[in-house]
Amino acid sequence: MAIEFLESIQKGEVSKLTNYETMELEQVDDVLTVTLNRKNNLNAMNLTMIKELIQLCDWLREERSVHYVVFTNQGRIFSAGADVFEMFEGMDDEDFKNEELRRMQLVGQEMIRKLESMEQITIAAINGSAYGGAVAIALTADFRLLTENSVLNLPETNIGLFLTWGCTPRLVKTVGALKAKEMIMLCEDISAEESVQWGLVNKVVAKDQLKQEVDSIIAKIRTKGSHSIRLTKKMINASAAPNFGEIVMTENELVEKVVLAGETKRKLEEFHLSKQK
């Protein structure tokens, strides 16, 4: 799974606007809208979606006609986060234990890094609640909008994991250590209003006003100097970047240690049983 995906990424395989299984792309002028579309699976992020997001970033690095990228969703929630049941299928197999866990983390880290470093201005138009890895994706965006009555939630410790893909230090930089511990350790819903107060999103909007607000942000940026906007993004991202090189380097092995200890399997089984009740 993750091994083959990582190898294809390293070979530089790049897709354009077609042939995506997990999302729909639409370009109007210089605005590309990326719509997550696994709504029958609550837009959960399986390895295919992660690979396709990486391929999208690779294509956009060379695509000069796109200046703005909007991430949004089909269905009632933005995304349920990582599709843990698919990703951890076969976790009792020795090959999985020895290699797959580490490789899955490398793929996730690569996705977050590439989304964060895109030269285009990115907007997360979060139409519904977002969980786990979906919150991580949203946090890579330059602007984040969240619809009313939606929540953000980090459920990782509920299933015997911790916030991975290099996202824990990013979250600490965004909300501070105290709030990061609250989000990750308690796994409680963060309301739309709290999300603004904590600096997780820029604004809360009504569902029927989401596109209008996206268009408004883009219209305002269009009036600025394009070179100064691009350099401003780079300068701010560089200034906000946490010094977490050692954390990212060791995170893969830490995940492997947690999973092989047996806690993740037990918590996943408990979670699965709770959803069947």
Rank of each mutant, 00 (worst) to 15 (best):
L200Q: 00
L200G: 00
V248M: 12
F244W: 07
K233N: 05
L210D: 02
T223E: 12
A238W: 03
I184W: 01
D189E: 15
S216T: 13
T223A: 12
M249F: 09
K257G: 07
M249A: 15
L268C: 13
I218T: 03
G262E: 12
A241G: 04
E263P: 01
K234M: 09
L231E: 11
S191F: 02
A206S: 14
S226A: 14
A240V: 07
I218L: 01
S191K: 00
V258C: 12
N237M: 12
I217Y: 12
V255W: 06
E193W: 02
I217S: 05
E246T: 10
Q212P: 04
V258M: 14
G262N: 10
I236Q: 10
Q212F: 14
V255K: 07
S216I: 04
D189C: 04
Q209A: 10
L186S: 14
V214G: 00
Q197K: 08
N243I: 10
K203W: 02
K181I: 07
S226M: 12
S228H: 13
E256I: 02
S216Y: 09
Q212S: 14
S191L: 02
L268M: 15
I247N: 04
C187T: 11
F244I: 05
K234G: 02
V204W: 01
L254N: 12
I218R: 02
T250E: 07
T223I: 14
M185N: 14
N237L: 08
Q197C: 03
D215G: 11
E263I: 07
A180C: 10
S226R: 07
A219Y: 08
V201C: 05
S228K: 15
K207G: 09
E188S: 07
N202A: 01
V205N: 00
I217V: 15
S216F: 08
K267H: 14
R222L: 10
A206Q: 10
R222I: 13
L186D: 15
A180V: 00
L254H: 08
E213Y: 03
V196Y: 01
S228L: 14
T264W: 05
K233Y: 04
V248F: 05
I217R: 08
C187H: 08
E263N: 06
V196H: 00
V255S: 05
E270V: 15
I221S: 06
K220C: 09
A206W: 02
L210W: 03
I236R: 08
M249D: 13
D189K: 12
I247Y: 13
S195I: 03
E269L: 14
S226Y: 05
W198Q: 04
V258R: 06
K203S: 02
A261K: 11
T250A: 10
A240G: 07
K207W: 04
I247E: 09
K181P: 01
K224T: 13
A241N: 08
F244N: 06
Q197I: 03
V204K: 01
T250G: 11
V214N: 01
A180H: 01
E194W: 01
S239T: 14
T250N: 12
D189F: 02
R266C: 13
K181C: 11
Q197F: 02
G262Y: 08
E193K: 01
E182W: 13
K220H: 10
E256R: 11
V204M: 00
D215L: 12
L231I: 09
I229E: 05
T264K: 06
G199W: 05
H227D: 15
I236E: 13
I236C: 05
E256Y: 07
A206C: 12
A192M: 01
K267R: 15
